[in-house]
């Protein structure tokens, strides 16, 4: 029993990582119907903006801040202007495929710079908490807290502010939104900038736990897609639910069912959800657009 509790709690901690990656993924989908197949790599990359600064002795907070700004510029603004805007008019699928190419591009780029795994310093180093007999590092708790805070902030922004209402209107029907005088383009840009900042924060929080390496985006990306779909693609809070569930299911599955098939269990869950509840566990049903 203690064992099961432990598996659940560590699973939640890992799941929070997936959730943090998945939030931006659902956000882009909601406001601009963009499927970012490179989302995992978006989280991999900012660590490599920050690491050289940290090695050069730049203070931690400043390195993270510059990393976030760079990420907003490159992975937010640049991604939107250079890739999404020109391709989006061709449809959802070409953009998804461009994301796959972007993923290769980013991974190979970082690999040519360094193929090593790097230690990334933690915000809160060497501190463990005991919760119901399980031991969780302070860093993992920080991930959970930040993920929750981000979702609450985003929910607030989307549901309670004018900008948020405008963003939602844009997401639901950009033509009508435009007619209503909403600066649609600016609204979409905001979500990309938010995603840019989110992935950089995720990168700084997650890299101490999984290390900084060119290939981490593969695992993170796959987990984030699964989390987003299981939780609900069109709800920011779905990403949290999906991520946490995924972390727990993964641990319990590999402990009690099969370690060889540990990766299969979330995939089966994904297939079942898509077949029987495509809107996700937390999502609203979306009208089928053809």
């Amino acid at each position: 029993m203690a064992n099961l509790v432990n598996l659940i709690i560590t699973g939640l901690a890992t799941g929070a990582i997936y959730a943090l990656v998945a939030i931006g993924f659902t956000l882009l989908w909601q406001t601009s119907q963009t499927i970012n197949f490179a989302q995992g790599d978006f989280v991999m990359l900012p660590a490599f903006f920050m690491l050289p600064m940290l090695h050069a002795g730049v203070p931690y907070w400043l390195a993270i801040l510059i990393g976030v700004i760079l990420s907003m510029l490159i992975l937010g603004y640049g991604y939107k202007k250079l890739l999404v805007d020109p391709i989006r008019k061709h449809g959802v699928l070409p953009l998804a495929i461009a994301g796959m190419a972007l993923s290769i591009f980013m991974q190979e780029g970082v690999k040519n710079y360094t193929a090593e795994a790097h230690v990334f310093p933690a915000l809160i180093p060497n501190l463990d908490f005991h919760i119901f007999g399980a031991v969780v590092s302070a860093q993992s708790i920080a991930v959970v807290v930040v993920a929750l805070a981000v979702v609450i902030a985003l929910q607030w922004l989307l549901n309670k502010t004018l900008v948020g209402h405008q963003m939602q209107a844009t997401a639901q029907n950009s033509t009508v939104a435009r007619l209503l005088g909403i600066p649609v383009e600016r609204m979409v840009l905001y979500t990309f900038l938010i995603n840019g900042a989110l992935v950089a924060i995720a990168s700084a929080l997650v890299s101490p736990l999984i290390f900084a390496k060119f290939s981490t985006g593969n695992i993170m990306g796959m987990a984030a897609f699964t989390a987003a779909i299981v939780g609900g693609f069109n709800q920011v809070r779905g990403a949290i639910a999906g991520g946490l569930l995924l972390g727990v299911v993964n641990n319990i599955g590999s402990a009690y069912i099969s370690a060889q098939y540990r990766d299969a269990i979330p995939l089966l869950l994904l297939i079942l959800v898509i077949l029987f509840r495509p809107q996700g566990l937390m999502g609203r049903a979306e009208e089928r657009t053809v």
């Binding site: 598996l7 560590t10 699973g11 890992t14 695992i219 590999s254 402990a255 370690a259 540990r262």
Partner: peptide
Amino acid sequence: LPSEAGQVDFASDVSKIKA
């Protein structure tokens, strides 16, 4: 205790070691 390349969470493996 087989693990996947890039695996992050080792709690289930450790639980098997404890058992």
